[in-house]
């Protein structure tokens, strides 16, 4: 009886975590990209993932978004082990990347409708309209994406990632190439999503911006986790030192 109670409470505790990684490894062509990573992200947290180029941030994002499998270790999302075939799990993850992941010849509305329907949404049209208003693109909803500026394309990409209302938002360098107003818009959007209960993992190069936005910081150096602490307890200089080693 006691062991059942313990097991139930362990499951409940695991379910409170959006992401739980243990000994996570990724090896590509004999090169170790991620080396025995272990971390936990509670639900509803805003986490910044920092590291130099090649530290393994994007690889970790690709593993968490189920685009590529890990080479070893254990990974669970929302208390469930991650399996590449799990359609239900895919519905809970949204990835914003520096690549737009959009069809350039289609309009934002057509892109959003397509992805919404692929996620099995019945109200895809309504949701697309709502999101295009949220990212301030309602007046350009029917123009082809190829005519958009970098900022407008990125806002469309964010709307695409949010189309299926994911619980975990993986933002891989979402500010890359954006001007100041667009950066501010994306910052506000991510903040609003976090306040509405979404868990956010933000991979970023701007240390000060990351410390300002996120509640917790993870720093990767050559595939290893070298810092995991609340952002209020660490300075930009300390983070920079950890990144550079």
């Amino acid at each position: 009886m006691r062991s059942i109670e313990r097991s139930t409470s362990a499951q409940a505790a695991a379910a409170e975590l959006a992401v739980h990684a243990r000994n996570l490894r990724k090896v590509i062509d004999d090169r170790v990209i991620l080396d025995d990573l272990g971390f936990a992200i509670p639900r509803g947290r805003y986490i910044a993932l920092l590291g130099a180029n090649g530290a393994g941030k994007s690889t970790l994002m690709r593993i968490l978004s189920m685009l590529t499998p890990p080479s070893g270790g254990e990974l669970s999302l929302f208390g469930q082990p991650l399996r590449s075939t799990s359609a239900g799990m895919r519905r809970r993850i949204g990835l914003i990347s520096h690549q737009a992941m959009l069809y350039r010849d289609l309009s934002p509305r057509e892109n959003l409708r397509l992805f919404g329907k692929l996620y099995g949404m019945r109200n895809a049209d309504q949701r697309a309209t709502q999101l295009l208003q949220l990212v301030n693109l309602a007046d350009r909803a029917d123009d082809p994406v190829k005519n958009f500026s970098r900022g407008m394309t990125q806002r469309t990409a964010i709307a695409r990632a949010l189309m299926h209302d994911p619980d975990l938002i993986l933002a891989d360098e979402p500010f890359a190439g954006l001007d100041a107003p667009s950066t501010h818009t994306v910052e506000l959007l991510l903040d609003a999503l976090n306040k509405s209960g979404r868990t956010i993992l933000l991979a970023n190069h701007d240390i000060e911006q990351s410390l300002r936005l996120a509640q917790q910081v993870l720093v990767l150096r050559r595939g290893k986790l070298v810092l995991d602490c609340p952002s209020s307890q660490v300075s930009a200089a300390e983070v920079l030192k950890e990144i550079g080693g």
């Binding site: 978004s65 685009l67 990347s97 690549q99 992941m101 692929l118 996620y119």
Partner: peptide, 16 residues
């Protein structure tokens, strides 16, 4: 068309 701007990754993220 699928390779441009990582559109294929968008498809692979979806439960398809």
């Amino acid at each position: 068309v699928e390779r441009h701007e990582g559109a294929m990754a968008g498809l692979l993220l979806a439960p398809v």
